[in-house]
Design a protein around this nucleic acid. Structure first.
Lengths: 353, 353
DNA sequence: CAACTCCGAAAAATCGATTTATCCATTACA
DNA sequence: TGTAATGGATAAATCGATTTTTCGGAGTTG
């Protein structure tokens, strides 16, 4: 155990060296497990380390090394389960390799995204895991390119010509949602989404539409999309319903969209699945405990994180070759919020409250 | 704009110095805004900085300084809205002061908590915002004390003899919940909670019980508590209901508890508020869009974060004095999940599904 | 026995900044 | 006019490690 008093200055490598009666270089070698040290000296170093409670200062250590053992992670937000568990996973994976994860949130702002990236560049991070606000062609990716940073893009991307990408297979998942909804008999479906510019949102929309049209060519698909902000979506949605539109199912392409849709259902007194069915992209813990449980597409957070870190470290270690785009399969959980159209007690839209 | 090519080694302070025809010390002074530099030289430095695209390396800079401009944050998890927005707030506040926030999750493990803290000590962080897994008397706080680290404890703490603490006023909020439930006519209430050892959970329980007994001395309050894990709570809850107990309202002291309670209601086919009422400590975005909307105690995340950072920086800047314990008031949102007992169509517990 | 190779360890250079000590001109004042 | 004070800048020390170079001694070889 450490014998030094608290409050005292932390021992440096030189303190250890002088107590062990060797040079600082030798201490450094012992700490790194280099074998070209006489066992006797190594033991003296170990003893001194133990006695003083010495630990290597990662900052000083990284200072001299070429690559600093820091990984940056930039997420659009920390408040959601998806990005929260993404950070947790990335943290664990970085730790496993002896790296420290420094996470920052761009708060859905491209300007902030670039600022953060510049800060990480200042920190000379070894690599960055970037979940861009919009898509792979944002200013942040451009900045990384320009400054020769190594990084991997995740989530709202499909492929890039400069960086590896890892994301959920939105199109395939959406196709499955389409199959499920059509098989239940839905023929008029509303698709709502946020962030028109996000590559994956478009992929989700296209994947859904293509599959639906293939299965039932005369299916009616309405689309309500809003750019990145929630409130516009809410009013667009109100306009849509005010026109008297009555789809039998709604597919929301984003978690926040699902929340907006649910609150609009509330306002109108519509219940799932009796009055209308609902599926959302992105799962959340609460969705299985509410009544009805909300059907959702589950993104493979663990796989995305693990693949992103794998490919990132391969680049850090100098692997060349063209950037690769990876898609991880999602799971679709059909819960109670999805039923057959007209299957409930009331199919009209009257306010029951 | 930066004129240097990408790929190139980043310019150091010496590169700037030689291009500006001054010494590195002068460049350093200019970068720090020290005024004892001839305007002419300062201009030459600015020009060189501009031309080379030079930015100070925070690592090297912190190396020499006494206090490193890094703040550590340790949260039990990243997945929940509460800790997610806590990190977001802390991040912003740290940035405002020119510090970098390094966040880590203890994943509800005291061992990991201490490990992380040791790592942050290695990093020589200027201060730590710690949301302990259990309470203020955990191993992490002990480690901080022993090593003379400066820090502030938040969330699951009430007061400490070594560190400042900032938390929600759990007792007052619970008292208000008691008042609300009793005024609706509830006389048999179940309180469920996780983390018996957390100081705030006890405060929540005591605050509720004290107020309830004060208002209605013969009130019946049952308590089901489980230690830190979710699954034990679930089975305890099943045992409780299996005994035939039929409280008219449930007060959950923790978000995860609320989820467990809801899923147990589902299993039994009970609906809120007709069959039973529910209030949870901790609000979440989804609680206002589900049907029924779930009543909840809203913790003042913003105030907790801002006060924690304030008090932390005061200590970092050397302020003395005994540690202070701060309690921030909560808001109680009574939503549809709370009604009067027997007010619904069925007050029995039959499985309707 | 001189020359050469090896090995382990110490000495010195380095990373990129900040801070302290030093120095050279002026300027101020007695 | 001589000396002290001052302003502005540079050289050098420092932070705490890693990495490279140097060095002394043991063992080999011709």
């Amino acid at each position: 155990m450490a014998h030094r008093q608290a409050q005292q200055r932390r021992p440096s490598i030189h303190d250890v060296a002088s107590r062990a009666g060797v040079s600082a270089a030798t201490v450094s070698k012992v700490m790194q497990g280099v074998t070209t040290v006489r066992p006797e000296n190594a033991q003296r170093v170990y003893d001194a380390v133990e006695f003083l409670g010495y630990r290597v200062d990662p900052l000083a250590s990284d200072m001299r090394r070429a690559k600093r053992r820091i990984i940056g992670a930039i997420m659009p937000e920390f408040e959601s389960e998806f990005f929260g568990s993404m950070i947790t996973e990335l943290e664990g994976l970085a730790e496993q390799r002896g790296y420290t994860l420094v996470a920052a949130s761009s708060r859905e702002s491209e300007a902030r995204e670039k600022e953060i990236l510049a800060r990480m560049h200042d920190w000379r991070v070894a690599g960055v895991v970037l979940a861009p606000v919009r898509n792979e062609h944002g200013p942040a990716a451009g900045f990384m390119k320009l400054n020769g940073m190594t990084g991997v893009l995740i989530d709202r991307v499909l492929a890039d010509d400069a960086f590896d990408t890892v994301s959920a297979d939105s199109a395939a998942a959406s196709a499955e949602v389409a199959r499920e909804l059509l098989s239940k008999g839905h023929r008029h479906i509303l698709v709502v989404g946020l962030g028109h510019q996000a590559a994956t949102v478009r992929a989700r929309l296209d994947g859904f539409r293509t599959k639906a049209l293939q299965l039932v060519p005369d299916i009616r698909i309405d689309v309500v999309l809003s750019e990145s902000d929630v409130e516009p979506l809410r009013s667009l949605l109100r306009d849509y319903f005010a026109k008297g539109e009555r789809p039998t199912a709604v597919y929301s392409l984003f978690l926040k969209g699902t929340l907006v849709v649910l609150s609009e259902f509330r306002r109108r007194g519509w219940h799932c699945p009796d009055d209308i069915s609902l599926v959302g992209f992105d799962d959340a813990e609460w969705m299985q405990v509410t009544w009805p449980a909300i059907a959702a597409v589950v993104q493979p957070v663990r796989e995305i994180a693990s693949n992103a870190v794998d490919v990132l470290f391969r680049r850090i270690e100098g692997e060349g070759g063209p950037p690769k785009a990876r898609l991880e399969p999602c799971k679709v959980l059909m819960r109670e919020s999805v039923g057959s159209p007209g299957g409930g007690p009331h199919s009209g839209g009257g306010n029951r409250q």
